[in-house]
Amino acid sequence: MQLLLDAISWICLLSGGFFVVAGGIGLLRFPDFFTRLHAASVTDTLGTGLILLGLMLQSGFSQASVKLILILVFLFFSSPTAAHALAKAALHGKLVPFVKR
């Protein structure tokens, strides 16, 4: 049982790390600010979620898990707010999104 939990938690940590790196690559590769915003949200949602989930599985039903859940919930509420504020400020600052068609 413990082995199974460990295995799942390692899978979560590894795939979380993969998504985090993918978001970082996207942040560097994408052509303009608005597309980079999407890349950053990959790390902020699934990357963070999987890594914190992996840590939660390591500590089981304890106070540390409660704190991890709090971090996760807070990030899930604040990161879209920050992204929206950024997009709106950029639009306000006369940054023209690169749009196909």
């Binding site: 999407h38 949200s41 699934l46 879209p80 707010t81 639009l91």
Partner: peptide
């Protein structure tokens, strides 16, 4: 609604 749109990668609500 706006937050859910932004939270889903691939779409960002701007206004």
């Amino acid at each position: 609604y706006a937050n859910s749109i932004t939270l889903t990668p691939g779409t960002v609500s701007i206004n």
